[in-house]
C-alpha cells in the first residue's frame, strides 16, 4: 500500500487594494498550490496577519487606513511576539532612500509588481523555504 504524505498548502495573505491585482495573484497562487486570502484594507490586513498564521504575506505599500510601511513596522515590532511569516513587499512605487533602508531591514523581499507577472510571482514564492 502506498504511503501518502499530506502536505498542507502554504498560506499566503495578500494585502492589496487594487482589486484586479489581488484577483490575478489569488488565481495564480491557488493554481500554484497555495492557500490565499486577499485583504484590501490596511487595518484589516494587520489584524488578519496577527490573528491567523500565514507563511507568506504579500504587502502592498499603498493600502487604505494603515499604510504598508506602518503594517511592516508593526508586524516586525520587536516588543511583539515574532511573526513566522515572510513578508514580501509588492509595490509599483519607487521608494526613497529612507524607506528603502527600512524595507531592507524589515522585509524578506521587495518586488515591483509591473515587472513580475503572477506566474513569475508563484515561481519566486516557490523558492522561499
Amino acid at each position: 500500500m502506498d504511503q501518502t504524505t499530506t502536505t498542507t498548502a502554504k498560506k499566503v495573505l495578500c494585502i492589496e487594494d487594487e482589486h484586479f491585482i489581488g484577483e490575478l495573484y489569488a488565481r495564480a497562487l491557488t493554481k500554484g498550490g497555495y492557500e490565499v486570502k486577499v485583504v484590501i484594507d490596511g487595518s484589516e490586513g494587520l489584524k488578519e496577519a496577527r490573528t491567523n498564521q500565514y507563511d507568506i504575506i504579500l504587502l502592498d505599500l499603498m493600502v487604505p487606513n494603515v499604510t504598508g510601511m506602518e503594517i511592516l513596522k508593526q508586524l516586525r515590532d520587536p516588543s511583539q511576539p515574532a511573526l513566522k511569516a515572510k513578508i514580501i513587499i509588492t509595490t509599483n512605487l519607487e521608494q526613497k532612500e529612507e524607506t528603502r533602508t527600512a524595507i531592507e531591514q524589515q522585509a524578506d523581499g521587495y518586488l515591483i509588481k509591473a515587472e513580475v507577472t503572477p506566474k513569475q510571482l508563484v515561481g519566486i514564492l516557490d523558492t522561499l523555504n
Binding site: F20, L24, K113, A114, T117, P118
Partner: peptide
C-alpha cells in the same frame, strides 16, 4: 516622475497579468 511611473505601472501590471492568464 516616480508618481507618474507608479500610475503607469498599475495598469501595466493588470495588462501583463491578464494577458498571461489568457495565454495560459
Amino acid at each position: 516622475i516616480a508618481l507618474a511611473v507608479h500610475e503607469l505601472r498599475t495598469p501595466l501590471t493588470a495588462l501583463r497579468g491578464y494577458i498571461e492568464l489568457f495565454d495560459d
